Computed example of a mutant assay.
Amino acid sequence: MALYAIADLHLASSGEKPMDIFGEKWSNHHEKIKDNWLGKITEEDTVLIAGDISWSMKMEHGIEDLEYINKLPGKKFFVRGNHDYWWTSINKLNSMFEGMKFIQNNFFTYGDYAVCGSRGWILKNNPKFNEHDQKIYDRELIRLKLSLDTAVKAGYEKIMVMIHYPPIVPNQLDNEFTQLFEEYGVEKVIYGHLHGWGLANVFEGEHNGVEYILTSCDYIHFNPIKIME
């Protein structure tokens, strides 16, 4: 049994957005993911998927992408990404597939770890950050805290977090998100969202006792990375 992670699958079974418009490396990327996944992941493993799962705007199309993932081996945990407009109520999502679970104000478990999370949002040092962003930023902080509180109340001491937006960047190592991680003793934070020029903002490694791991699909060469045994 092992824990893997990957983010930004950007599936498009409906044909709404072929990813090769972003470069040749994205050509047939869903098949690259599938081949790499089948080469290492078993039914006993768990995979964390940190958002931007499907380009679909509505669940009637997004279901095709979810079924594609469901057919791959292993249990899967998800958080929402900024492009996951198909994402419906959390109760509905968590009733759809036995082996796929969705995190929003709740948590799931891997061994003796609680896996918590939220979508997150752009950080305040972003020059485009505005009043609208502040409202979403505050809401995502609340959702993350609810997820963490629920895990702690259930008796979990070992915690990891999945979040879509990078919660830490080289020029802003400390903010409300990192403070929450440190306050709750989070060991690992798995995130995505960064591609292309955005990779200049990558922070990986340890900061104040928390390990940060970027798992954007193209960054890890469409190959799920092992987080722990």
Rank of each mutant, 00 (worst) to 15 (best):
T109A: 02
F107N: 07
I122W: 01
G99K: 14
N126L: 01
R119A: 00
Q104I: 11
G120D: 05
G117M: 02
G120P: 06
D112L: 01
Q104N: 14
P127C: 00
Q104Y: 15
I103E: 11
E98L: 11
Q104D: 15
K128P: 00
C116M: 05
G120F: 02
I103R: 14
F102L: 12
L123I: 06
N105S: 09
N125G: 08
I122R: 09
E98D: 11
N125H: 12
W121R: 02
L123T: 10
G120K: 01
Y110N: 13
Y110D: 14
G99F: 09
I122L: 09
F107L: 11
I122F: 04
F102Y: 08
N126Q: 01
T109D: 05
F107E: 06
G99V: 07
I122K: 11
G111Y: 00
N106Q: 02
W121F: 07
S118W: 02
F102D: 03
G111N: 11
V115Q: 06
S118M: 04
Y113R: 07
L123W: 02
C116D: 04
F102G: 04
I122Q: 05
R119T: 11
N125T: 13
R119W: 01
F108A: 10
D112K: 12
K124A: 07
L123G: 05
E98G: 08
K128A: 08
F102C: 05
G117N: 00
Y113S: 13
G117Q: 01
Y110L: 11
T109M: 04
F108K: 14
R119S: 08
P127R: 05
F108D: 12
C116Q: 06
K128H: 06
N125Q: 13
G99N: 15
K124R: 15
V115N: 06
T109H: 01
N106H: 04
Y113C: 12
K124V: 08
E98T: 09
V115T: 06
R119F: 02
C116R: 02
L123E: 08
P127Y: 09
M100N: 04
G99H: 15
N126V: 03
G120R: 01
K128W: 06
I103F: 10
A114H: 00
I103S: 14
I122E: 04
N106P: 01
C116Y: 03
G117S: 01
N126D: 15
W121M: 02
I103A: 13
Q104R: 15
M100E: 07
F102I: 03
F107Y: 15
K101N: 15
G120E: 02
P127L: 01
G99Y: 09
M100L: 12
T109S: 13
G117L: 02
Y113V: 10
F108N: 14
C116P: 08
R119Y: 03
N126Y: 10
N105Y: 05
F102S: 05
Y110G: 08
I122S: 07
P127A: 04
D112G: 00
G117A: 02
N105K: 11
G99W: 11
W121Y: 05
N126W: 09
R119C: 07
